[in-house]
Design a binder for these strands. Structure first.
Length: 233
DNA sequence: GCGACAG
DNA sequence: ATCTTGTCGC
């Protein structure tokens, strides 16, 4: 894949519908660049990202936290016109570009980013966490609220319990209980981290709620800002 | 053709 | 994701 397309994806993403097939092709190519090696160094700064919609626009937020102390350091957001519909497996092209922009607006570069979506637990091994992780070349983890692909057994009801998420005989992530007696989350590595590391990270960010603090905060902020900007040119 | 299907 | 109040349960 050439650098031109690489930069274009970060800046403008893909449009609809002429590039729908290109989207899948791009995913298959980027998937080869995903690294599942253990985290190189302990992260000190972690960012959580999420997106919300209003009118015909997408607003993505990035919340930076210290780690493992989990103190909020800074928050950013980016708004863009929605150019792609929601299609299972192609989420990256709907909210990936604005998400990347929000991350790049952070004054301090995060050592790792947690996404509200899948990492490699994806049809082509490139969920939004892997997609953005590769384009930004920053370690990333996917923490989704529901399953996209893979099979699993119900994990134990206690906090910290988990069971492998696998496609055929290949483990691509884990179904983790971040809070007792509450629906589990689907964790999978995005880029430059392995499954065990992803699990430890998400669990370390799970305080008293189902979603890890960085992502939970980004979710709340995106919704608040979306309502604030709604129906207001 | 039928069912599944991140946000 | 989004449209939306109160209500059941731990």
């Amino acid at each position: 894949m050439d650098k031109t397309l690489f930069k274009r994806l970060k800046k403008d993403g893909l449009s609809w519908p002429e590039d729908k097939d290109l989207a899948r092709k791009v995913q298959r190519e980027l998937a080869d660049k995903v690294a599942l090696s253990p985290l190189a160094k302990a992260p000190a700064l972690i960012a959580g990202v999420d997106s919300a919609f209003f009118d015909d626009r997408v607003i993505s937020t990035a919340c930076l936290f210290s780690f493992p102390s989990l103190e909020l350091i800074e928050e950013t957001f980016a708004i863009k016109e929605v150019r792609f519909p929601y299609i299972p497996g192609l989420l990256s092209f709907r909210e990936g570009t604005s998400t990347i922009e929000a991350i790049e607006k952070l004054k301090k570069k995060p050592d790792l980013i947690i996404f509200d979506g899948q990492g490699i637990a994806h049809p082509r091994g490139l969920g939004i966490a892997s997609y953005a992780g590769v384009l930004l070349d920053i370690p990333s983890v996917g923490c989704a609220k529901s399953r996209l692909v893979g099979e699993y057994d119900e994990p134990g009801k206690t906090k910290g319990s988990w069971s492998p998420l696998k496609i055929l005989d290949k483990t691509v992530g884990a179904v983790l209980r971040t809070r007792a007696n509450v629906e589990p989350v689907f964790v999978s590595p995005g880029h430059k981290i392995d499954i065990k590391g992803s699990l430890r990270l998400v669990l370390a960010c799970a305080t008293a709620y189902r979603l890890p603090e960085p992502t939970r905060r980004a979710d709340a902020l995106s919704k608040t800002l979306a309502r604030k900007h709604a129906s207001r040119a």
